[in-house]
Design a protein around this nucleic acid. Structure first.
Lengths: 213, 213
DNA sequence: CCTACCGATCGGTAGG
DNA sequence: CCTACCGATCGGTAGG
């Protein structure tokens, strides 16, 4: 990656990426100007363009590097060869910890990736599917019955909803931290899925919905 | 509201609001042009400005009318005086049904409301807090113990995560519908919260995290 | 004096 | 690595 480049090159790029992620997250991709990003990291606009071909290149690098980070977490958890339940809750915990210091990157991934062009968007989407698949597999090891009822995809996405939605409401200065959220999410989710599988659907015909799917 | 206005006035406005919601949802507020909105509903741009003072007025009306719709659902469910569990699951079901035909409005509310100016943003946020409070109250009636453990806020937002995240992945042409999601969400959530309260935290010290909060 | 409506173009700023 | 710019398109409004 940094082949033949000055050692400061990657540092400079990283600073620009951070500034861009912060502004994209706060103002949105189309409402954040390249001048503002340049200003935020104390360089001229032409210098910013020396490091990044165009605005979309910044966006792609933010999303791509962040999802690589998430895939690295998945790989490092898998390497530990934990039991099904420990593996699953470790995944959730490590993700929540990552989220804590990657809020800008995560918000960009969620809200701005749709502005990438087809090829780049698909490249990011493919990596996202690998992350989702890792969680779905971890879940299937804990609760194998879900697949037979065709609920595995929906239930995995419900889990992502629980953890990803935290970005919309959890404040850094609040009483709860991202770290605190991990056991709460894991607890509700695993107990909930077990209850669902036992058919305790709060008086609602859950199996009917699954059969329709 | 429609005092002295021609009967077509409100219809014309509604058509423009729908077109704007569709484009804001698809392209984002700052990437959707007033020209494109005008074109989408077959009127000239000046005519669009005759109905809506400016672009932000459109955004506010989309968000405000939609959240009024959600508050109306809350009121209509409360009017039925159901038991705690039926009330709660009816809330979730009615919201998921509303989401099914209000995807554009919901996406705008989630992703674009931050572009409103202070006064209008606060007006929308205040109504959103009333919706959240209604769910928190409904949950407290089902599971009173949450409040004592200061988990009520976090757990309510986890529920919103479960239902609101569906917008990012649920496809209209997929096997599952928004309607199918209601009993699955309710089942996982209520069983999960009960398990959490019984202390079945998947081997994790949940109560410890709550005590820190 | 109102609502409804158009062709043309304004001042200002985006990405590059 | 800067100042100085461009083609285009933005949100919003003029006259009629």
């Amino acid at each position: 990656m940094a082949r033949g480049k000055a050692p400061t090159f990657e540092l400079q790029r990283a600073a620009m990426l951070r500034a861009a992620a912060g502004l994209f997250a706060e103002k949105g991709f189309h409402n954040a100007s390249m001048s503002a990003i340049a200003q935020a990291c104390g360089v001229s606009k032409p210098l910013l363009y020396h490091y990044y071909r165009d605005k979309e290149h910044l966006l792609f690098d933010i999303a791509d590097s962040y999802i690589d980070e998430l895939l690295a977490i998945v790989a490092s958890v898998e390497a530990r060869k934990l039991g099904p339940e420990a593996h699953f809750s470790e995944l959730v915990t490590r993700f929540m910890e990552e989220y804590e210091h990657a809020q800008d990157h995560h918000m960009v991934l969620v809200q701005d990736v749709k502005f990438l062009k087809e090829v780049q968007a698909e490249s990011v989407a493919a990596k996202q599917r690998r992350v989702v698949a890792a969680f779905a597999d971890a879940l299937a090891r804990v609760e194998p019955g879900l697949k037979g009822r065709k609920l595995d995809k929906a239930v995995t996405m419900i889990l992502f909803g629980m953890i990803n939605w935290t970005f919309t409401w959890l404040r850094a200065d609040g009483p709860l931290t991202f770290h605190d959220m991990a056991p709460i999410v894991t607890g509700i989710f695993l107990n909930g899925v077990r209850g669902l599988m036992r058919g305790e659907g709060a008086g609602v015909a859950v199996s009917g919905a699954a059969a329709d799917a």
